[in-house]
Design a protein around this nucleic acid. Structure first.
Lengths: 192, 192
DNA sequence: CGTCTATTTGAATGTACTCAAAAGCGGTGG
DNA sequence: CCACCGCTTTTGAGTACATTCAAATAGACG
């Protein structure tokens, strides 16, 4: 595995060499093992994470113990509880590691400093957030309008690379169906 | 009904008198009647709207003709197809008027100019968007995890003022259930 | 009062869920 | 190399919740 650089994190941005040094300083590389919990509900959310390799997920546990996955993040994705990260409120979510991962964390303060030092990054993130917003919107429609089978197919189409990193029960918890139902859906599709 | 001023649109912001004039110039007041369609899928989305009075909604129609409501906007709310508004892509949604409304539209370009002229407005909107983001997130969880009855109750709790402006079939299309189911849910709740 | 629209009710159907058990898979140690 | 263990997926039977389609009622308004 190649080492991850600032240019990998902010693909497409042109940096001056001093900017690279400034930016690199603000990130901390972390190696996380499968099962590690990075965030628990009720905590403040000082960091966001860039996933270089491996897989993390954000999820929610209801009163009666059921898990629902909000997001997976594989290589090149950013992940956090953004609602809490933005507002400074306490988190509603868990974030854990689904597959051994190399990630880079950066705090909110460093982020804001970075916007000043490397202004291109501010618009880089604005665009990221706009896309995020759009994907949430599509997700809402999909949850409202689609059957289990259709949601599964939409997931495969939208995120073709994620499936290989996750267990079926994680996928089921993202789709909002039971593992058993997902199993049956896959079975039906295989027959066709 | 009192006239709407810039201070009503941007509650909490302190303006100089020159800023007020600048800002007022960028908005166009429109009176829309129930049933008016403001946006159709496939169009570009040059405007966002501030609702002073009345009610608008953003919705989506699937291939087989079913409607799903993404958002309602009553007084003090902003509405648009923000995904398309931000990115410049074409809209996926309809926006129409559910109850006679007085709204103020502003174009994307005017918005950007306004950020320069009245910098406080940029952070005003950043906070609005963060809240929007959070509400989408909660909506996703609610769609995933809750029964029809629970979703209905959550809606009443989250948006206690919206119900009186809309028909039950509109609410049903927001909750992702049929009118008949909503009727039964309400019936059950009334018995208790 | 009559018409149009919205809501409610009923019966039959379907999709996904629960609970329980069986089968499959991957790694470890004898 | 096989046996065993823990974890994941599959299968089956019964059930629950929401849907569909059709018809009946209720409300709003001229």
């Amino acid at each position: 595995m190649q080492k991850c650089t600032i240019k990998d994190i902010f693909k497409g941005i042109e940096f001056s060499s001093s900017q690279i040094a400034i930016a690199e300083n603000k990130f901390t590389e972390i190696f996380v093992e499968k099962g590690t919990v990075l965030l628990t509900p009720g905590e403040l959310v000082p960091y966001q994470y860039f996933v270089f390799d491996g897989c993390l997920r954000t999820y929610f546990i209801t009163e009666n113990g059921k898990e629902y996955t909000l997001q997976f993040a594989i290589n090149d994705w950013w992940i956090s509880d953004y609602t809490a990260f933005f507002t400074g409120e306490k988190s509603m979510f868990y974030i854990d590691c689904v597959k051994d991962a190399t990630i880079f964390k950066i705090s909110k303060e460093s982020m804001e400093q970075l916007y000043k030092d490397v202004p291109q990054i501010e618009s880089f993130f604005r665009i990221k957030m706009e896309r995020f917003f759009g994907s949430y919107q599509k997700r809402i429609l999909s949850d409202l309008a689609l059957s289990a089978e259709e949601k599964y197919l939409r997931f495969l189409k939208s995120y073709p690379n994620i499936e290989k990193h996750i267990k079926n029960y994680h996928l089921a918890s993202y789709l909002g169906i039971t593992t058993e139902s997902l199993s049956r859906v896959r079975n039906e599709l295989a027959k066709k």
